[in-house]
């Protein structure tokens, strides 16, 4: 976490692609700088002694409640398709998937 910049321009470019965000060079440079400053700030967590401390992913100790296996009905197809930017009345349409499985 310490040492050189936590996030450089190349790193930012990689993260932007992973996050599927089209950013221009200006934005990339801005974010790289800002994120680097933030990452340097959060590096203070290294001061904590966390030996044997479990992480908290839910604030309150809850148990997963389940639901009975019952049908509660689906939406009319038109209701959900009509919200899509492109559809053919039966499917959502997207630019052709490259390297699809």
């Amino acid at each position: 976490m310490s040492g050189g910049p936590a996030l450089d321009l190349e790193g930012a470019r990689r993260i932007a692609r992973l996050a599927r965000l089209a950013l221009d060079e200006q934005e990339l440079a801005l974010f790289a700088g800002q994120l680097d400053a933030i990452l340097r700030y959060v590096a203070q967590l290294e001061e904590l002694s966390l030996e044997g401390i479990e992480g908290t992913s839910h604030a309150l100790a809850l148990e997963c409640r389940t639901r009975p296996d019952e049908l509660s009905g689906s939406s009319p197809r038109e209701e959900l398709l009509s919200r899509a930017p492109a559809q053919d009345g039966e499917h959502f349409l997207v630019p052709r998937v490259v390297g699809h499985e």
């Binding site: 599927r20 089209a22 630019p95 052709r96 490259v98």
Partner: peptide
């Protein structure tokens, strides 16, 4: 590099 679909999502999110 990722094709048109990836570019569409990235552009939509970027904008």
């Amino acid at each position: 590099a990722g094709g048109e679909l990836e570019a569409m999502s990235a552009a939509s999110r970027g904008r």
